[in-house]
Design a protein around this nucleic acid. Structure first.
Length: 240
DNA sequence: AACTTATCCAACCGCCGCTAC
DNA sequence: AGTAGCGGCGGTTGGATAAGT
């Protein structure tokens, strides 16, 4: 093992602490829980082992297919891939990939898997993602195959100020986002009305959640939400 | 049965991006 | 503007176990 194994007692202490104080504030967790572990160890132990609804056991063929497909789209973005596999952690996916799939990549096996996958591409079920949460507006719940509406959605991004470069594909949109234009819109505290231009007026496929989430939109979060969106778009497009 | 090799997976490490000061 | 601190991520390590010889 890479380090000192967690004891059942430590697990219990960590679990109790998280249940009492909630996730986040990992720097305080070791102190609050009375654990002689660093913040990262506590977080990792919780995320990969103690968190509720973690699925154990071997990956199903559907999960494997999805991993291969997603890896083709996003590369080694394990957390992103794991987000589409309910109950699976990024570490699980990464380990599975490294132990099984990466080796197959260089062999005929992987091409067999992929050719089967391509021959029957419609059978891959795109798992519904978690709701999207955007600053100050009701969160978006992505329907299965949100990308169905993306062709209609893209023109809405052209309403941003300053005008964005011409965007025709999800990848182009992703590139623009990474350059910061969309981030800037958000970080400058865009109003709900402005956000509705971004999201609220999107086609019917983009359904609004009931709850309005005002917190938990911390660092990196919006980035991944956007990438979730784009990944769904790519998934959808690749399955057409 | 003893030894070697392969596989699994929990844990650690270093880096990155973001926020607050 | 600079920077320290934090959360989060992907890459890597190495002990445990299974499979093969």
């Amino acid at each position: 093992m890479g380090g000192v194994p967690w004891t059942a007692e430590e697990d219990q202490m960590l679990k109790k602490c998280i249940e009492q104080f909630g996730e986040g504030k990992w720097h305080r967790v070791p102190l609050l829980a009375g654990l002689n572990r660093c913040r990262k160890s506590c977080r990792l132990r919780w995320l990969n082992y103690l968190r509720p609804n973690i699925k154990r056991g071997s990956f199903t063929s559907e999960e494997v297919e999805l991993i291969i497909k997603l890896h083709k789209l996003v590369g080694n973005r394990w957390s992103l891939i794991a987000g589409r596999l309910p109950g699976r952690t990024a570490n699980d996916v990464k380990n599975y990939w490294n132990c099984h799939l990466s080796k197959k990549l260089s062999t005929k096996q992987i091409s067999t898997v992929e050719s089967e996958e391509n021959a029957d591409i419609g059978s891959v079920q795109i798992i519904q993602s978690q709701p999207l949460h955007l600053n100050g507006v009701p969160s978006l719940r992505q329907p299965v195959g949100i990308a169905a509406g993306i062709e209609e959605a893209l023109p809405y991004y052209s309403k941003l100020e300053p005008p964005l470069p011409e965007i025709n594909t999800p990848s182009q949109l992703l590139g623009v986002k990474d350059q910061g234009e969309i981030h800037d819109q958000e970080s400058k505290g865009s109003t709900a009305a402005e956000n509705s231009i971004l999201l609220g007026d999107l086609p019917m496929e983009f359904q609004l959640d009931d709850e309005v989430r005002v917190d938990g939109f911390g660092r990196g979060k919006q980035r991944w939400d956007w990438e979730d969106l784009f990944m769904d778009m790519d998934l959808w497009n690749s399955s057409l």
